[in-house]
Design a protein around this nucleic acid. Structure first.
Lengths: 121, 121
DNA sequence: ACAAGTACTTACAATAAAGTAAGTAACTAA
DNA sequence: TTAGTTACTTACTTTATTGTAAGTACTTGT
């Protein structure tokens, strides 16, 4: 026999699962978007990069966007931010193991794009 | 005054990978977004689906959005649209080989999301 | 005194993406 | 005659995302 809390829990459970759609949608919500994949890709290639280096490497990104995306990715546990207490400031970004685990996926995306979009009609 | 590291950095003039026309960005432009990945995933799983079946299978999508995304994917050569001249209308959607070639990527996304987002904090 | 360097933040404007509700066509069964 | 079926389209509104320009902090070099 269920008490009120159990019923509430069960209701919440159902609702939670419905809200938590398909994992591919979740993936896209987390690391999709205009800037996140390319930030991650640059950190895969270069291992450690400073704010300005990322800024210069990503064509068309603004400092505001870069800052925002880096913050998001840090909170997702995908990258590390290491700040040195020097003037002028120095901050280094690098991938966590979780971030590094995206390499095969991004690499597959790269290959797919090269094969199917770049040089095809 | 510059410290040793700064001097070394400047001297080496490190060249970082540039991200314009980056294939990963291209990939995201093509099959990223809110609905395309899940449409493709459903067609991977079910092989052939009708408009209404897709509509019912994708939580929260509107007919307008579904129609638009299907049109985009068809133009990208990712899916086939087969229309039967019957009343009421019957249209079947399925993946082209190009669309099917996305399976390992989407599968990797699914795995990554399950491992790193769903059950972690 | 003043510019330069680095890693940001803030306020505001513009654009892109998505949602809503309704309508359309053509036939068929009640 | 009217409702039901299917695969859409259209007009309009709302929300989300991105862009722009400027400002901040702190210290060193000129």
């Amino acid at each position: 026999m269920m008490n009120k809390e159990d019923i509430a829990t069960k209701k919440n459970e159902k609702k939670y699962q419905q809200a938590n759609e398909c994992p591919i949608t979740i993936f896209m919500e987390k690391i999709g978007g205009k800037w996140k994949p390319v930030i991650i890709w640059l950190l895969i290639l270069n291992k450690v990069m400073r704010f300005n280096e990322l800024d210069k490497s990503i064509d068309g990104i603004s400092q505001k966007m870069l800052s925002q995306q880096l913050k998001d990715l840090e909170q997702l546990g995908i990258l590390n931010r290491k700040s040195y207490p020097v003037i002028p400031p120095k901050v280094e970004y690098s991938l966590t193991p979780k971030g590094q685990s995206l390499e095969p996926i991004l690499d597959a995306m790269k290959t797919w794009a090269n094969d199917n979009v770049l040089y095809s009609k």
